[in-house]
């Protein structure tokens, strides 16, 4: 019964993350922000270390640092006049290096392996609640900004000329992405959380060029949700069947889905 409850928790957690990462991943891919996810995950590690040093739960530190990065990134881009891509390339290794130094110099213990690969099968009720709250927040954000973000992806000038505060929306979407990564890293790990974002959305981009079933932004997002959920079920099933690490198993199933789709549709 104990094992069943944990398995159900991990299934629900993975499904919730899979559902929200469908539309969020589409926006990430359209806006060319795939690198954001990776950087947020690295910066979140630093947040976890800082939080542990301050005696609070690592999850809160991760959320705080990820949101801080979302707010300061546009400022840093303007101040340094460097591309966002370059800044992300600077921030990701620096934050991991700082985290490692802090861990080595202090007496705290952080399980970096757990943060990299996640602890899907150790999902608690508290984790589930936190993810559910975060996902509702991100869902509301996506629902209200969806059309504006699509117009902004097409042309920033068109969006601004029609009075849309596109730069504010950018910060809000980045904050939403940061929140998603911070919530998901503890459960799904750095690897799976980025795979959830980028792999299904990329599969749906390929499918949208071949089938009308994926030929609208909404259909793409729904398709990404379905693909993510199918991979969660199959990945967890394989993990149980042949005793694989759950997060890595889902990640490999997602990759196989991508290989199959890119092999059949060119």
């Amino acid at each position: 019964m104990f094992i069943d409850a944990f398995l159900l928790n991990s299934l629900f957690a993975a499904l919730m993350l899979a559902c929200i990462s469908g539309p969020l991943g589409c926006v990430t891919v359209w806006k060319g922000m795939a690198r954001f996810g990776e950087t947020f995950a690295h910066v979140a590690l630093f947040g976890a270390v800082i939080a542990t040093l301050g005696g609070i739960l690592p999850g809160y530190g991760m959320i705080f640092v990820a949101l801080l990065l979302a707010l300061f990134l546009p400022f840093l881009t303007t101040r340094t006049r460097l591309s966002t891509d370059s800044l992300l390339g600077i921030l990701a290794p620096s934050s991991v290096a700082l985290a490692l130094i802090l861990v080595q110099q202090t007496s705290i213990s952080i399980d970096f392996e757990a943060l990299l690969f996640g602890e899907l099968l150790a999902t608690t009720n508290e984790d589930l609640l936190l993810i559910a709250i975060g996902i509702v927040l991100i869902g509301v954000l996506l629902f209200y900004l969806w059309s504006a973000v699509i117009l902004d992806v097409l042309s920033r000038d068109l969006a601004l000329s029609e009075g849309l505060p596109a730069r504010l929306y950018d910060v809000l979407m980045t904050a939403g992405l940061g929140l998603f990564i911070a919530l998901g890293v503890k459960i799904a790990g750095l690897l799976l959380i980025n795979a959830f974002l980028v792999v299904p959305a990329s599969c749906l981009v390929i499918l949208s060029r071949h089938t009308r079933l994926a030929q609208s932004p909404e259909r793409m997002a729904i398709g990404a949700v379905l693909l993510n959920c199918a991979c969660v079920f199959l990945g967890l099933f394989l993990a149980l069947l042949i005793d694989l690490p759950a997060g890595a198993s889902i990640c490999v199933v997602l990759f196989l889905a991508f290989c199959t789709i890119s092999a059949f549709f060119r």
Partner: peptide
């Protein structure tokens, strides 16, 4: 605008574009 470079990753139909926002 003088030119629009539609994002080839975004499957947005002409009708939907005209109705967007």
């Amino acid at each position: 605008p003088q030119k629009l470079n539609p994002n080839s990753l975004l499957p947005l139909s002409l009708r939907r574009f005209a109705m967007l926002c």
